[in-house]
Write a protein that binds this DNA or RNA. Structure first.
Length: 561
RNA sequence: UGGGGAGUGGUGUAACGGGAACACGCUGGACUCUGGAUCCAGUAAUGAAGGUUCGAAUCCUUCCUCCCCAGCCA
């Protein structure tokens, strides 16, 4: 766990340190998280959110939440609320600094007029197709628009009439007058305003022209007094343009854009389009499916937000395109849950055990610790009776060498309760399936050890048959079989057919009855689980957050191959 | 074949001219009322070639590889 409040050491912090040493921005640090409200946030956004908010905080500064809502055709109010919810869930607070680029539409418009007046922008009548043709290619320069040298008066008049709605959608644009021969395509007279009669989720039909990102972003930053505008690597090519607008308008103390690498995870996609394909194609149950890399999916799965943040901070900040292994995320989640999750016994695949020398009506309440990692967590009482269930995998009639669990004639410990010895195996005469074990217990072992100090190799979890609470348990595996879902060219072909396994007829200890949705537990020897909102009064539903490391499974897997 | 970035163990991050470190993974062992956790040990890296220097991951040159850019998306 990284210590909170400790100053980070990444390259962005170094830039900030240098700025402060030089007295830039009067020593201020002000960042912003600028999502476009056109979809749900995912794990990649978590890194951006963490960087934006935590670097501000670490430097005594502030971070704004600003919706970058300059494209009304794709944006919706629904996403605004969802994004706010997700950022809050991660534990960040934007205070009263909730902004929208659309709040600045009038101001941005005035900036655009100013650009025209300075001879740095012009209205262009080229069609989208012509514009593309005029732009040139990666290796050939573009050509200047025939409308490039209109007078300031004509441009102003035309632009005002664009705003007034005198021209059809797409018929004209406002372009920055920069350099059609620039090797950086972004500088080849980029469009800064387009005509678009679309209802905006906040401004309604007030506007029929909307600013482009490249124009709106640096100026929105300037308006909010942002000092360090942090974004991902693909905007590196846009930085000259970002700076160009600020210079062209002579913005004092201009903000600076700094780019860092996105967070990518193995076995995971974050492309909005592909995520939508998974949802719409029914490959997952929705945007909050616990297998999804969306923050809502991870929340439902049971990932603690603190663990996600810790993960981000431990992955680090750099400019190297990196793919972090899903295993590392799981490690951090386990580490967090190991310290915080209450232990509980749950039998996922029950096998009945009758303890023949245990009185029929006796209920022995045994004491079990809630979390051996945290003495403060205390203990609880669990009922032990003559008929119990153990995990079917914890018994083998003909056990291999390193199998330390129950087998005919073998003695094991039942966690917190006692030692039992398997005396008889009852099978279904028709199928040969083991349906019941008849065991005896050693009353001396009550509590989990014996006066003679003899040792048993295995400790099993169990539930009392008549006290157990039924549950459904959903086990998850990565959505994709391959580290890189794009391997082979078709991500759908790499989908893991076993990404969801639903276990019914599971039995959990009685204390779990009525457990709150979202609460997290460690099912002893299985993993960490969270209560799913699908739970009802009659049936608890659990999601497996992450399994426990399992060295037995590893040994088995090794011997099988 | 233009422009912008990036190359350190299997993975991610450090080292900022001076003994390549940390974390995850992996291997082995200790311990254990979770085959968990913990502990201990081991494994393994500076893209290449030149050059500067007493000394280079770090500075210079050339080369190689990978990523991004031709929306009136962000």
């Amino acid at each position: 766990m990284t210590e909170p409040g400790k100053k980070p050491t990444h390259f962005i912090q170094e830039i900030i340190d240098a700025d402060r040493a030089a007295g830039r921005y009067g020593g201020r640090v002000h960042t912003r998280f600028p999502p476009e409200p056109n979809g749900y946030l995912h794990i990649g956004h978590a890194k951006a959110i963490w960087i934006d908010f935590s670097t501000a905080e670490a430097n005594g500064g502030l971070c704004n939440l600003r919706f970058d809502d300059t494209n009304p055709t794709t944006e919706e109010e629904e996403f605004v609320e969802a994004i706010k919810e997700d950022v809050r869930w991660l534990g960040f607070d934007w205070g009263d600094r909730l902004y929208y680029a659309s709040d600045y539409f009038e101001q941005l418009y005035q900036y655009a007029e100013e650009l025209i007046k300075r001879g740095k922008a012009y209205v262009c009548d080229l069609s989208p197709e012509e514009l593309r043709a005029y732009r040139g290619t990666l290796t050939e320069p573009g050509r200047e628009s025939p409308y490039r040298n209109r007078s300031v008066e004509e441009n102003l008049d035309l632009f005002r009439r664009m705003r007034a709605g005198e021209f059809p959608d797409g018929s004209r644009t406002l372009r920055a007058k920069i350099d059609m021969a620039s090797p950086n395509l972004n500088m080849r007279d980029p469009v800064i305003y387009r005509i678009q009669r679309a209802r905006h989720h906040r401004t309604g039909d007030t506007w029929c022209i909307y600013p482009m990102y490249d124009f709106a972003h640096p100026l929105s930053d300037a308006i909010e007094g942002i000092t360090h505008s942090l974004c991902t690597l693909e905007f590196e090519d846009h930085r000259p343009l970002y700076n160009w607008f600020l210079e062209a308008l002579e913005i004092p103390d201009p903000p600076q854009q700094i780019e860092f690498a996105r967070l990518e995870l193995t076995h995971t996609i974050t492309s909005k389009r592909k995520l939508r394909q998974l949802v719409e194609g029914g490959y997952v149950r929705g945007w909050d499916d616990p297998r999804m890399p969306t923050l809502r999916g991870m929340r439902r799965r049971g990932y603690p937000p603190e663990a996600i943040i810790d993960f981000c901070s431990r992955v680090g900040v750099s400019k190297t395109n990196a793919v972090i292994s899903l295993g590392f995320l799981e490690h951090v989640v386990r580490e967090h849950l190991n310290r915080t999750a209450q232990r509980v016994m749950a039998v996922l695949n029950p096998l009945k055990v009758v303890i023949t020398n245990f009185p029929e009506d006796r209920v022995e309440w045994v004491e079990v610790e809630n979390n051996p990692e945290d003495p403060e967590a205390g203990t609880r009482q669990v009922p032990f009776t003559r008929e119990i269930y153990i995990e079917r995998d914890d018994f083998m009639e003909d056990p291999p060498k390193k199998f330390f669990r129950l087998a005919p004639g073998r003695e094991v410990r039942l966690k917190g309760a006692c030692y039992i010895t398997c005396q008889e195996v009852v099978k279904d005469p028709a199928t040969g399936e083991v349906i019941e074990l008849r065991c005896t217990w050693d009353p001396e072992s009550l509590g989990g050890s014996t006066p003679d100090g003899r040792r048993v190799k295995g400790t099993l979890h169990w539930v009392s048959a008549r006290h157990a609470v039924p549950a459904e348990v959903r086990l998850y595996e990565p959505l994709f079989l391959t580290e890189d879902p794009e391997e082979g060219g078709d991500f759908l072909a790499n989908l893991n057919p076993n990404s969801l396994q639903v276990l019914t007829g599971c039995l959990v200890e009685p204390g779990l009855a009525g457990a709150a949705v979202g609460s997290r537990y460690q099912f002893l020897r299985h993993g960490y689980f969270a209560v799913d909102p699908d739970s009802t009064e009659d049936l608890l539903v659990f999601n497996r957050i992450v399994p426990l490391r399992d060295s037995w499974q590893k040994i088995q897997g090794r011997e099988r191959t």
